[in-house]
Amino acid sequence: MADSYADASADANAVADGFFDDQTLKYLGVGLSSLFALGVGLLLLYILATQVDYGLIPTILPQFLRAYGLVLGIVVTGSVLSVSAGIFVGLARVSKTRITSGLAAIYVQFFRGTPLLFQIFVVYFGIPTLWPGTFPVQDWGIPTAIIALTLNHAAYVGEAVRGGIGAVHDGQMEAARSLGMGYVQAMREVVIPQAWRNALAAVGNDQIILVKDTSLLTVIAVPELIQQFRSVNSATFDPWTPLVLVAIAYLSITIPMGRLVEYLEERSDWGGESQ
């Protein structure tokens, strides 16, 4: 049954476009992707073999490790805050109270509609000048990082959560209410757990972007990873050694995060194929 269908569709394709049949397309895909991977792999090997100064690594490793720790701290704080705030933004977006949903929409428009770099500048340069007298915070860079990343990513998480809530069938709320649950209780027990599963992939994607967004903090001299690249590069004129360290540092955060999202998705599988 399934085979005959596949054959029929393959024949149909061959006849219909007369250009690629399914088999040719498959070989073309394998060929092109292998070729690409081979090219990139060779280039990488060449760089690692001839361009990286392994003797330099012990000297610059301590400053990279400090930067790595700082980035991790900013990421963990920013993630917790932006996801928590984002859930509230998403809930506000679906509120039946016009004022609440309207204000949430404006919030999202602003923080999604202006560059993160601009928002960092607003917080870093703008806020201290508004202070009557001397701004009390000495080291404003890291607080700026956390504030700007949280405000920016709460907007994206909020949109993901809004979409997740929208994808929950109306009947779920009705069923919960018909059992005597209040609106808040029904949201908490029934709608939000399902909305969260729906939103998980989009939220995970956004949080991985948050990790990479810490690189922008180099412009306000937060000693993060790109800042270390710049300091090593300007001292040694060696681009590849610090670049490789930067790549390893980011990937060692973002790849496990991707895995964590997959794990969370699998864990809320609820007994099989999605409804």
Partner: peptide
């Protein structure tokens, strides 16, 4: 409170999938 005394069954079941 009143809804607790009124059981409702829907065409589309509406069981909680989670």
């Amino acid at each position: 409170r009143l809804r607790q005394r009124i059981g409702m069954v829907f065409q589309s079941f509406n069981l909680f999938p989670h």
